[in-house]
């Protein structure tokens, strides 16, 4: 076990928004490690969001929330939270009710299609049960970092117990709607996401970018 892991304590991710170069190495490393074929289901995604006050890179997957809304709404009992806080889906139990997807503020539960997932398991009840980030438990068991953390070219990602993250990155903010509204695609509920973010400065604030905007251009020279 890594020094950053305690079997009985909640695990979480750390993300430094000032270091994410939008390279998507983590996105591919995640799919590649977890054998997720090309296609719409992607356990983690990177996007540089555009707001009126700046550009905000963010790469994240399931936040293994303190109060996972996905698990609460799953009437099939397919989603559970482990001792170290990892939220896990048992795909054999999934009935594809998809309530978890809308309940999750971040829409992180994923459903593949026939093309992406051509070989259904006999143990599945439905063709494409929900799938999502499992914190690379197989890698953790082998003493490795999650695939996304290990691959991060900008050294923007870290993981560990929430205690470890708070100690090491005291300035990081827990993912919340007020500071990171673009992450909340389904609802604004506070589910206690275990993602801690060092934010990038907003435009025209200290340390933020200044944009010197060009004028409009009609496609015809202005004489």
């Amino acid at each position: 076990m890594s020094y950053k892991i305690d079997e009985s304590k909640q695990l979480g991710f750390y993300f430094d928004q000032t270091r994410c170069g939008a390279c998507n190495a983590c996105t591919v490393a995640c799919k590649d490690w977890n054998q997720v074929n090309p296609g719409k289901a992607a356990w983690r995604k990177q996007f540089t969001y555009e707001l009126a006050d700046g550009f905000f890179p963010l790469a994240f997957g399931c936040n293994h929330c303190d109060e996972p809304a996905c698990a609460t709404v799953c009437s099939a009992g397919a989603i559970t939270k482990d001792a170290n806080g990892i939220v896990t889906v048992n795909r054999d139990k999934c009935q594809k009710l998809e309530m978890c997807i809308t309940a999750c503020p971040f829409a992180k539960p994923q459903i593949a299609d026939d093309k992406q997932e051509p070989n259904p398991h006999v143990s599945w009840r439905v063709s494409h049960p929900m799938q999502k980030c499992n914190f690379c438990t197989d890698r953790l068991a082998a003493g490795m970092e999650p695939a996304c953390v290990a691959s991060c070219v900008g050294r923007a990602l870290d993981f560990g117990t929430v205690e470890y993250i708070k100690n090491k990155y005291p300035d990081a903010k827990r993912l919340n709607y007020g500071d990171f509204p673009y992450a909340f695609v389904n609802n604004q509920n506070d589910t206690g996401p275990n993602l801690f973010i060092k934010p990038i400065a907003k435009q025209n604030t200290a340390g933020g970018m200044v944009i010197h905007k060009s004028g409009s251009y009609t496609g015809k020279r202005q004489d």
Partner: peptide, 14 residues
């Protein structure tokens, strides 16, 4: 490593 993990590995095209 339990079954839950195994099923997550089952997606490869081949």
């Amino acid at each position: 490593m339990g079954k839950e993990t195994n099923v997550l590995k089952s997606l490869e095209e081949s």
